[in-house]
Write a protein that binds this DNA or RNA. Structure first.
Lengths: 206, 206
DNA sequence: GTCTATATAATGATAGAC
DNA sequence: GTCTATCATTATATAGAC
């Protein structure tokens, strides 16, 4: 069953439902992931999130308790999909580097949990929530594909480079980000190799 | 000449001066660098910055035009001191990695332009200001110590890793940041080598 | 199940006194 | 050269109507 069968005014496609709590909740969560990724935790209000979801701001607090509660769910929803997809033939560092360069193109307006992370890092409560989410999702997914020692550290360092590239290219668009993008992936691959590659199993000398 | 020679009440050491525009301006700027580094552009108000500088919020606008004007000066003041100090005997990647691990200790409460950067990245106007500051200061300083091709990209990638490590360790304190910190620097050194080291002159294969 | 209206608090910036 | 007092705006969260 859809909404009411024969009701009143023409409904804009932005607000296609009425009286469906679960759908409204999902719409708010989707809107929150988009908004937090684009503007960060402190950069967007619940009014705006609600408006984009086609409902009023009150429902945000009704369904998620508070803005912070909504943020926590949004963070986990954003990080949950696997971002590390191992390709069968290419080494992990190579496929990761290529994908990263593609997705962080300064003109692309991509959505990514790393954007949400970078743009919400200023808020201490948001930072605490995101630290847990990183440990649970991308760091763990990466860790599970590694062998050898210092798994947490190596996964953390790979994530650090990935976040840094998102920052420099997608968020800041600093020089060296745009032109000659094809030469970028091989460098990133070589930076990732010491922590991801097969020859990274042994602890580095020093 | 100092302030008035014989005036009135006992002055607390927090507010040691009166009627010295230049000193007040400097105090505001110092306070701004600290506050923006700790809380980010949107995370701190001009009232708080002014209070910490021992003056009223009005003077911030009087001397810097606006909060954004203050931020721009603060950013350049924060990035201007050289963070890359080449040591004579050690390779650049090694001294950089060691210094980075020391300074990003999660318990250290260090101040760094990278903290200011990470915590203000959510604001688009702040991001634009900081992108210019990065190009002008750390990226340029790094670039000047490199040889070979793709200087901008390689300096950008080194900065990306540095910023990412600051994020993971100092801002978020994710697992893998704290324990066994001595094993971290060698990995970072090996990640930096492909873009900083002498063998990075040639473009990587692919 | 969802709305409008409101309470309360904080923000950046400005006017005018001293 | 610096202050207090204030304006206009915005934020989260809540009360009560329908």
């Amino acid at each position: 069953m859809a909404t009411d069968s024969a009701d009143d005014a023409p409904r804009p496609s932005d607000r296609p439902r009425r009286r469906d709590a679960a759908a409204t909740r999902t719409a708010i969560l989707d809107s929150a992931v988009r908004a937090f990724s684009r503007h960060g935790y402190d950069g967007v209000g619940v009014r705006e999130i609600a408006a984009d979801a086609g409902c009023s701001a009150m429902l945000v607090n009704r369904y998620f308790g508070s803005k912070e509660g909504l943020f926590e769910e949004a963070v986990h929803a954003a990080f949950a999909p696997r971002t590390v997809i191992p390709e069968s033939d290419a080494p992990l560092a190579r496929s990761l580097a290529r994908r990263l360069v593609e997705r962080t193109d300064p003109d692309a307006e991509t959505l990514s949990p790393f954007l949400l992370l970078l743009r919400s890092a200023a808020n201490p409560r948001a930072a605490a929530i995101m630290a847990r989410a990183i440990e649970r999702h991308p760091q763990r997914a990466l860790r599970d594909q590694l062998d050898g020692e210092h798994l947490d550290q190596r996964a953390m360092l790979a994530d650090a480079l990935i976040a840094g590239v998102w920052l420099m290219r997608a968020v800041l668009d600093v020089a060296g980000s745009d032109d000659d993008a094809d030469s970028l992936a091989p460098y990133i691959e070589r930076m990732l190799a010491p922590v991801l590659g097969e020859d990274a199993t042994a602890a580095p000398r020093d």
